[in-house]
Design a protein around this nucleic acid. Structure first.
Length: 800
RNA sequence: GCGGGCGUGGCGGAAUUGGCAGACGCGCCGGACUUAGGAUCCGGUGGUUACCCGUGCAGGUUCAAGUCCUGUCGCCCGCACCA
């Protein structure tokens, strides 16, 4: 039979549309299931074969859940604000809105061609004013809660393009697009206090079904550390406060280091005799780009502040103070106590500058290297701490510091607040105005959405301000509080804004009164299964958890965590095993695959290619195997006469239902497909199959290859869509064999395979085994030392 | 440097979590049907071959190790002077 996939697929996609087969029902009494995939950025290139992998995977999950009677919400939308669109618009003088519309249309038709069971009636677009109205609304709530603030920040600025660049656009210290120098420019930026949620973002992970690597990556990114702050008196009269995780080593602090930007330098410039040298160092550090700072990590540099000293509060001794860029201004207090005997960086610095190294934790050889092990050391040379283990010493030291009033226990995080401003056009306007009298004031909520105005040009301005800043009419406005003259914020939000809450909008996408109704959120949230790329672990995933937690705290969202389960797919690599990219010329376009093999084959191959979580190279040869399987499956309709089944096949199918069901739940799509292939092979061997059995196979295959499953189901004379038919159930008793072929080992080597009744006990099994010719011969003149019987698995007889 | 992951046939990958290593597919070899086949169907396919050897490498635990432990080599992905 000819497999006319093109027409079959077109036909069933139309039928599904007509039947609204995949629309989530508005009946909140049904059991719900909310699977989510990351909505794409509709780029000009269209989909590549990497996109459908996660979409197909959760489509399979969605389709199975639907067949199992769940009310499934499997939505799709567009994360459409962003730089590539803006750059394309600038280059081609087209409005980004038009570019976005075009790209969305292309993406949508490509996704539709794959037969994904999205509920398109809930499609959303972050650039739609009715959507970003609520993105702005959330910003206003953050502002009101004191979680949005302005701060002077250094940003990347391309001198040639006159454009502020994101960190990702700065490659090797130069502009990614034009190769010109990138300088750091200080600008006032909107920031969001994600650090306020640092602890909640860690503790919230408990009990969530996230894959471990996601949890650890988030925890590491947040970087919580327990330590202490200690005040050091100095000879200037000022105190220097440091942060340390090793307050137990205070007796070994032989010098101090402060960041070049530390205010101590400025405050005490008169007392520092080599201030010129210090300021030269400071200026040099400021000139360094981030790139240079990280590349030059090897050699420690620094300058001592001559004329001033600090006093070690434990020993009472004077110790020198240095500035060095190995101490970061933005972490802790921007100052450290240096303990070269027990910190590798301090050790390197001390060696280079000839500073004393005093061992205070015994256990290593501090002549050779810093001894940093906290589990085995014992304190020495440390007065009242002598003889204590590290942990006990820390506690004793904190008690000492607190009693003297010069220090306290303190928690620190690596996580920084979120830079929320972009000097760009194609983003959500930040809904605040600056009033001379009232300062920063939010736009009244009833005036939302604050729409992005049309501008003459999307080119950023000479000074790196957003193009919106040229729109004088738009910028000049009245203060909503006092009515006086005010100016609008011309920065826009980053792309991460719209994606930080989109899953909430899916619950109730057409609501114009609130971001989503409380009932809809209560019913649909949390997302039951969220799959996405590992690259989003520390940005999107963390940001969206932050917003969700905030919305939970202000009673907008009923759940403290948005996602119950998080998984991550592996990348699809090019044929050569390298990452697919235009520059490598190894990109595969799904349109070509669908044209040459059909969407069902494409879907099946992407799921069969390997472990879902592992990267796998694309292999154009292997696709054929999947197509062959579907053809063989289609041809089973000629065999399905409706005659009686065979017990062998019946058992096989019961086992298959069990395996496919559990494999989908465990996202082992590749082995589910392998099992279905094996079953079809078995049918060919047996030579017959009943209509009902084939219909069962069609239902099992339906989530994977939905079009051909519908076609076969219809050919068999069944009415209705197999996509929403009932998921087959299996009879446990029919999945177990009455006799099992068990391998029998002699001294760990398989010597025979014996057929054993499943119910046999150990003695019965051994009797049967010893009756086996080969085994009998092998143990005839030997002494049996041990007999191991693992029912259903293996028998091992140890002989001498 | 720190954190995470991975090393299994010619290739993609299986292995019920300690129980017959190589399921399923690709490729390859042979056969059938064909004017023909890069279509389809059937059979074979880890290496050697009466024995044995085989999951990056070297040890260990065990009746039994791809799976657990110790050491080691190689690759990939994050983060990167976070005190």
């Amino acid at each position: 039979m000819h497999y006319d996939y093109a027409n079959i697929e077109k036909k069933w996609q139309q039928r599904w549309d007509e039947a609204n087969a995949f629309e989530a029902k508005q009946d909140f009494t049904l059991p719900k299931y909310f699977p989510l995939v990351e909505f794409p950025y509709p780029s000009g290139q269209g989909l590549h074969v990497g996109h459908p992998r996660p979409y197909t995977a959760l489509d399979i999950v969605s389709r199975k859940k639907r067949m199992q009677g769940y009310n499934v919400l499997y939505p799709m939308g567009w994360d459409a604000f962003g730089l590539p669109t803006e750059n394309y618009a600038i280059k081609n003088k087209i409005h980004p809105k038009i570019v976005t519309e075009r790209n969305v249309a292309r993406f949508k038709s490509q996704l539709k061609a794959l037969g994904l069971s999205f509920d398109w009636s809930r499609e959303i677009n972050t650039t739609d004013p009715s959507y970003y109205k609520w993105t702005q609304w959330i910003f206003i709530q953050l502002f009101k809660a004191g979680l949005a603030y302005k701060k002077e920040m250094a940003v990347n600025f391309c001198t040639s393009c006159k454009v502020v660049l994101a960190n990702e656009e700065v490659v090797g210290g130069v502009c990614e697009r034009c190769g010109s120098a990138v300088i750091r420019k200080v600008k006032s930026q909107w920031m969001l206090k994600i650090t306020e949620y640092a602890d909640k973002l860690i503790s919230g992970l408990d009990g969530l079904d996230f894959i471990d690597r996601v949890k650890t990556q988030q925890i590491n990114w947040i970087g919580k550390s327990n330590g202490a702050e200690i005040d050091f008196a100095t000879t200037t009269g000022d105190t220097l406060r440091v942060y340390t995780t090793r307050c137990d080593t205070l007796f070994g602090a032989t010098y101090m280091v402060i960041a070049p930007e530390h205010v101590f330098v400025e405050k005490n410039r008169d007392k520092i005799s080599n201030i010129a040298e210090v300021e030269e160092y400071k200026a040099a550090a400021a000139r360094k780009s981030d790139f240079e700072r990280t590349e030059l990590v090897k050699e420690k540099t620094g300058v001592q502040l001559i004329g001033v000293n600090a006093i070690n509060p434990a020993t009472g001794k004077e110790i020198p103070i240095f500035v060095s860029d190995y101490v970061l201004a933005g972490y802790g207090t921007g100052a450290i106590m240096a303990v070269p005997a027990h910190d590798e960086r301090d050790f390197d610095f001390a060696k280079k500058f000839g500073l004393p190294i005093i061992e205070v934790v015994a256990g290593g050889n501090v002549e050779e290297a810093a001894f940093t092990d906290v589990a085995t050391g014992t304190l020495i040379n440390s007065g009242f701490l002598n003889g204590l283990e590290v942990e006990a010493a820390k506690a004793a030291m904190i008690k000492f510091l607190e009693e003297k009033g010069i220090g306290t226990a303190r928690v620190n995080y690596k996580l920084r607040d979120w830079v929320f401003s972009r000097q760009r056009y194609w983003g959500e306007p930040i809904p605040v105005v600056n009033c001379e009298k009232c300062g920063w004031v939010t736009v009244p909520e009833e005036e939302l959405p604050l729409e992005l105005p049309d501008v003459e040009s999307y080119e950023p301005t000479e000074n790196g301000e957003s193009p919106l800043s040229l729109m004088t009419d738009w910028v000049k406005c009245k203060c909503p509080v006092c009515g006086g003259a005010a100016e609008r914020e011309t920065d826009t939000m980053p792309q991460w804004a719209g994606s930080s809450w989109y899953f909430l909008r899916y619950c109730d996408p057409h609501n114009d009164k609130e971001l989503a109704s409380a009932e809809a959120l209560k019913y649909w949230m949390p997302v039951d299964w969220y799959n996405g790329g590992m690259e989003h672990t520390t940005l999107h995933l963390l940001y969206s958890r932050f917003w969700s937690k905030f919305l939970y705290d202000i009673d907008v969202v009923p759940v403290p965590e948005p996602y119950l389960k998080r998984t991550s797919h592996g990348m699809i690599l090019g044929e050569n095993g390298e990452k697919m990219s235009k520059s490598r010329g190894n990109v595969v376009n799904p349109d070509d695959i669908i044209r040459d093999y059909g969407a069902d084959t494409m879907r099946l191959y992407e799921m069969f290619i390997g472990d879902f979580e592992q990267a796998a190279p694309w292999n154009p040869q292997s696709i054929k195997g999947c197509k062959r399987f579907l053809e063989r499956f289609l041809n089973l309709t000629e065999m399905a006469a409706g005659e009686g089944s065979t017990p062998e096949l019946e058992k096989h199918i019961h086992k298959l239902i069990k395996k496919v069901s559990s494999d989908i739940d465990q996202m082992k799509f590749n082995t589910a497909i392998a099992a279905m292939m094996a079953t079809v092979n078995t049918v060919y061997e047996v030579g017959k199959i009943t209509k009902d059995e084939l219909a069962t196979l069609a239902r099992l295959l339906s989530p994977f290859a939905p079009h051909i499953a519908e076609e076969v189901y219809e050919m068999l004379g069944f009415s209705g869509l197999v996509s929403i038919a009932k998921w087959p159930e299996y009879d446990e008793s029919k999945t177990v064999d009455s006799t099992i072929d068990m391998p029998v080992q002699i001294n760990g080597k398989v010597r025979s395979v014996v057929s054993i009744p499943a119910a046999a006990d150990k003695d019965a099994i051994l009797a049967l085994v010893k009756a086996d010719e080969k085994i009998a011969a092998a143990i005839a003149d030997k002494t049996i030392v041990k007999e191991i019987v693992v029912p259903g698995k293996i028998i091992n007889i140890v002989v001498k």
